[in-house]
Design a protein around this nucleic acid. Structure first.
Length: 372
DNA sequence: ACTCTGCTTCTAGACGGT
DNA sequence: TGAAGCAGAGT
DNA sequence: ACCGTCC
């Protein structure tokens, strides 16, 4: 859900902190993406795509297309997967689950938090074949994205919800879709703080008052009042002493300190122990996995891969490999991607998991690397 | 006038041919 | 699910 | 740019 109306507040009160750039502006930049949100978007996009076995493969198709689009634009993506949601988020998740369950069959109600294991593994396998790194966050993905940005390993976080800002992501971009010539909207956290005249701690307080995932809202305190009162008094505690508690009752079980701690000292993957590595997509592996194993339309997969290959900046040196992007061979080249054996398993490479600090995951073989 | 709430409503991704 | 637009009530 | 289709 993110922070209610935060984007509106920023655009109104700190418009200078928001700019918009063409995608090409981000060439050669490392961008962290919240994998769960992206996958959730693909899964809910209409219509759902089913393969011949009745499995929903919207997420694979979406991830495949969008990632290639990013790569074609010279962007170096890194996907961050959600871990365990914080306890303070449980009430929200429960409400969500209940609402979804009441509305429809509970089967489809699972939100991206805690993606079903096979779904996530499919995505990891796909990313490995695409040569794109991914990171397992211990808790909220946005928090680890922010930590990566702060560490300098990543340029910005790309996400549709604004949580990354209170988590401390110095830059956040939205609307990073696959449309041609899409304009990306960039929020600069330092500029936001400067224009609002706030510290990061005060900004976090603002986000809590606006309404976050971790605790309820104060009745009758909306964006305008919250901002004004905070700028005036500095902290939520001070604000509370200057408003009528009768007219602005606190929600039950309001854990202000807990929410603050989740934003200011979140549990994140240690950027220092993360190695990000990109390599060329593996067309054969992709065809084998997407088309043969997951039964995505083979011609489409091949066509898209071919488009990617033709968009590659040609190395001036003669490429000894099969290539020759000449005209007239387009249709014929499809055959190159077909592996010899139809039922070949994907190579036993998978990003290593990254949980306990003791586990070193960095197997040299991993295609899609990671670890912490 | 301003601001917050609650209600309604619509919409979601990407490709390819036209 | 959310985001956007409108009605209405409280300040 | 629009719109039907993707599986």
């Amino acid at each position: 859900m993110g922070i209610a109306r935060l984007a509106d507040v920023i655009k109104e009160e700190a418009a200078e902190a928001v700019s918009s750039f063409p995608l090409r502006q981000y060439r050669d930049r490392v961008i962290a993406l919240d994998a769960s949100i992206a996958i959730y978007q693909f899964r809910t996009a209409t219509p759902k795509l089913f393969n011949r076995n009745g499995e929903n493969i919207s997420h694979l198709q979406g991830l495949f297309y969008r990632t290639l689009h990013l790569l074609e634009n010279g962007i170096k993506p890194v996907f961050v997967f959600d871990g365990q949601p914080p306890d303070l988020k449980q009430p929200l998740l429960a409400r969500r689950a209940e609402a979804a369950g009441a509305r429809r069959d509970a089967a489809e109600s699972r939100r991206a938090e805690n993606l079903p294991r096979p779904l996530k593994q499919d995505c990891e396998t796909l990313l490995s074949y695409l040569g794109v790194p991914y990171v397992q966050a211990p808790a909220e993905a946005e928090a680890t994205c922010a930590a990566l940005v702060k560490s300098g390993k990543v340029w910005c976080t790309a996400t549709e919800d604004m949580d990354a800002l209170p988590f401390g992501s110095l830059r956040l971009i939205r609307h990073l879709n696959s449309k041609n010539n899409c304009e990306v909207e960039e929020f600069s956290l330092p500029d936001i703080l400067q224009k609002l005249g706030m510290t990061q701690e005060q900004f976090v307080d603002l986000c809590i008052l606006l309404g976050c995932d971790y605790c309820g809202k104060i009745w009758q305190l909306g964006p305008k009042k919250a901002l004004k009162l905070l700028q005036q008094h500095g902290t939520i505690e001070q604000v509370l002493q200057n408003i009528d508690p009768q007219k602005h009752p606190l929600p039950a079980n309001w854990d202000l300190e807990g929410a603050r701690r989740l934003f200011l000292q979140p549990e994140v993957a240690d950027p220092g122990r993360i190695t990000l590595e990109w390599r060329d997509p593996d067309p054969e592996g992709l065809v084998r996995f997407l088309a043969h194993e997951k039964h995505m339309n083979e011609a489409r997969v091949c066509r898209r891969l071919q488009r990617w290959q033709e968009a590659q900046p040609k190395p001036e040196e003669a490429q000894p490999k099969h290539q020759a992007p000449r005209e007239g061979r387009k249709q014929r080249k499809l055959g190159e991607f077909f592996p010899a054996s139809k039922h070949a398993r994907p190579p036993e490479v998978r990003g290593v998991r990254a949980r306990p600090p003791g586990t070193r995951g960095a197997r040299g073989m991993a295609q899609g690397i990671i670890l912490c």
